[in-house]
């Protein structure tokens, strides 16, 4: 089954007097359970593509389909509902709400979804244990390291078992050891829960974990490598 389908996506930004093609006729299919890295130099279009797939940014033309449903023509409210129920996000920074504890951050999405309190608590404790943060449930983000914060963000992204997790430079602010631990966690979650991961990065170490590597340049896909086969 196809988890993500992009058909002829185009997106142009205006920067000063120049038009920047962030997406230039991008076509892409990602199968369910895939573990894909989008790689590009800065300004190559990987974040724009990730945002378009996540319903955070609308393309100028083309179509985006998630789990068989076209999303580029949905309203803001419908997109919010889609993000809430079907997609988990891990951003590069500012991933957590500072006034909430680790557990409350993990529960946030479930709370908005309307999951009962007891179920939320059970799930959040279990997922925090799974990402190695047992005992840190009541800490606020300011009292946690960058790696721990990213783990909380990952826990929040996957706690309600979304079909798709989109991560934008998730290791950009982490040291190599913490980056490896985080990627190992992604791989484990991908394998155990069959969650589709799409990770935008320009970190070679992160790319090495992906089964499929898509290289982009100037808004176009220039390479699509099956790293398992390779």
């Amino acid at each position: 089954m196809t988890a993500v389908r992009c058909i002829d996506l185009c997106k142009t930004y205006r920067q000063g007097d120049q038009d920047i093609k962030a997406l230039d006729h991008v076509n892409l299919d990602i199968e369910s359970g895939g573990f894909v890295c989008l790689s590009a130099p800065s300004g190559g279009g990987k974040t724009t593509l990730l945002n378009a797939i996540g319903g955070l940014d609308s393309p100028d033309s083309g179509e985006v389909w998630i789990a068989g449903r076209r999303i580029d023509n949905l309203s803001k409210g419908e997109l919010a509902q889609l993000r809430l129920t079907q997609i988990g996000f891990v951003f590069q920074a500012y991933n957590l709400i500072p006034v909430l504890s680790a557990r409350e951050n993990v529960e946030f999405v479930m709370q908005v979804q309307g999951v009962p309190a007891a179920e939320r608590q059970d799930k959040s404790r279990a997922i925090l244990k799974e990402v190695g943060l047992q005992g840190l449930e009541d800490r606020r983000p300011a009292d946690m390291s960058g790696g721990q914060q990213q783990r909380v963000a990952v826990a929040r992204a996957i706690v309600s078992r979304p079909e798709l997790v989109l991560a934008d430079e998730p290791t950009a602010n982490l040291d190599s050891k913490t980056s490896d631990e985080l990627m190992a966690l992604f791989v484990e979650l991908n394998e155990h829960h069959n969650t589709t991961f799409v990770i935008a990065t320009h970190d070679q170490r992160v790319m090495s974990y992906a089964r499929r590597l898509i290289r982009m340049l100037d808004g176009r896909i220039i390479d699509d490598i099956d790293q398992q086969a390779a």
């Binding site: 803001k76 919010a80 509902q81 809430l84 996000f89 500012y94 709400i97 500072p98 946030f108 908005v112």
Partner: peptide
Amino acid sequence: EIGLMLALGMRP
């Protein structure tokens, strides 16, 4: 933070 909450699916 507000952007994050909106991105995670909170309604305006």
